[in-house]
């Protein structure tokens, strides 16, 4: 990637996975040796890559996964608040994805059915450490404003690379055939 010569500083990037499978993060790593190139241009804030737990001011936030529980909401708000540009990364962040297939089931009925013992006793875990489930799984743009969408389950490494390349070099990202995939 040819970075603009006058790029004043490294761009700061946060990434997170909400209600996702980390597949998009795996795909991100699939850019392989280009990671080294990327490392010249960006530095990572909160991300599974750095293990930083909370986000500071960033240029770009990549969000994998939809919003299925209270913790997802907090994390998403944290990223939105700190990132100049927020990106929905992958099918779940864009449209709810696989977890959203529960959306026409009643969440209370789901929980009581799943946590029913053989004797018929219902014991839904109620530890305050556990984030509570929302009634539905929401695409992230139904909770916060989102600047860019990168669909795919997951988007391929090449797709992510093309997107980041555009973004880092100041071009409006454009994803088209054959990089644009919903599956």
């Amino acid at each position: 990637m040819n970075a603009p010569r006058d790029l004043p500083r490294k761009l700061r990037v946060a990434t997170t996975s909400l209600s996702g499978c980390f597949g998009c993060h795996m795909s991100f790593l699939d850019i392989d040796e280009r990671l080294l190139e990327l490392a010249h241009l960006v530095e990572f804030d909160r991300s599974p890559i750095t293990d930083i737990k909370h986000c500071g001011p960033c240029d770009i936030g990549l969000v994998e996964g939809g919003v299925c529980n209270a913790e997802n909401v907090h994390v998403l708000h944290e990223l939105r608040k700190n990132c100049k540009v927020l990106v929905a990364l992958g099918a779940c962040a864009v449209g709810g994805g696989l977890p959203a297939q529960r959306n026409n089931l009643d969440v209370a009925k789901c929980l009581t059915q799943i946590y029913r013992t053989e004797s018929g006793e219902v014991a839904v875990p109620n530890d305050p450490e556990l984030p509570l489930l929302l009634d539905k799984v929401y695409p992230i743009n139904e909770i916060v404003r989102v600047d860019y969408f990168l669909p795919g389950c997951p988007p391929s490494g090449d797709t992510i690379w093309k997107f980041l390349t555009d973004l880092l070099t100041g071009r409006t990202p454009r994803i088209e055939h054959p990089l644009l995939k919903f599956d």
């Binding site: 909401v73 929980l111 009581t112 839904v124 984030p131 509570l132 929302l134 009634d135 539905k136």
Partner: peptide, 23 residues
């Protein structure tokens, strides 16, 4: 959002019996 986020937790609060700050 088009809906009340706290209200979207109501059902889960009800089946877990929780009402703590994190709920």
């Amino acid at each position: 959002p088009a809906f009340d986020l706290d209200a979207a937790l109501a059902k889960a609060r009800q089946v877990t019996g929780r009402d703590d700050a994190h709920a």
